[in-house]
Amino acid sequence: MESRILKPILGVYLALFILFLYGPFIVLGILSFQAGPDGGPQFPIIEWSTYWYRHLFGMTEVTRVAPLHLREALFRSLTLAFMTMVTATVLGVISAQAFRRRFRGSGVVFYLIVLGMMVPGVLTGLGISLLSSELGISRSWWGTAFVAHVVYTFPFAFLVMLAIFNRFDPSVEEASWSLGVSPIRTFRKVTLPIVFPGVLSSMLFAFTLSYDEFPRTLFASGSDLTLPRTIYATFAVEIHPNIFAFGVLTTLFSFALLTVFGILLYLSTRRAKKIARQEDI
């Protein structure tokens, strides 16, 4: 049987493929422990040290390697990601709720929303900065960049919620109405708790996509740097392992977010799993 040969070959291939995906990360992680301040961003490791991590937090003496101004950038990025998450998720939920009933023009509206994730960031960014300068609005991370981030993340939240509502049984809402509970309160008390795993996923998408967003931010955020723009600024100059150390930390932060999300999702779907178990018995 050919698949007996093919399967191990493809298995090995997948291992190499995963190495290809993660290899650069691993190398970057190793080099972040390079000796400082004279160790360069390449092999061999002169001496293992945490110098570049301390450098990041300003705990080392001043050298020719300029410190990255991460604190303000981190604050801006987190705030921006949070604002984006809330706005995109709210828009995504109410828009998907609207799509539960077909309305005139729903096809056009669907494509209008999805366009937000299809148009390259460089175009959205350019367009928003052109428009804002024409209207005399100064660019800022909390204004122009924020609206650009929502344009990008809202479609993700929308699609997630659309998928969730597709599997939602509307009779529980009708049951609530027939018990004398108003539609708005029904949405809050019944609908929202049931679709909460979807809301959580929408929030995760919106937060992480915004936190890492770069091309839109580059054009639309004005002079204040966000974290990705701080990293981008180092592209043009000589790089030092401090940027690697930062890469390790921000990756760990992303993983922490994923873990928190995983735990929350697990907690909110444990009930659903219980159903499955009960029905097995």
Binding site: A98, F103, T124
Partner: peptide, 25 residues
């Protein structure tokens, strides 16, 4: 049950957002 009117009410913020910050740019 959200009728067509309600649907438009719910979709309006999203449509305005995308029109102002995506189509117009």
């Amino acid at each position: 049950r959200s009728g067509e009117g309600t649907a438009w009410l719910l979709i309006t913020p999203g449509v305005i957002w995308m029109t102002l910050f995506l189509v117009a740019p």
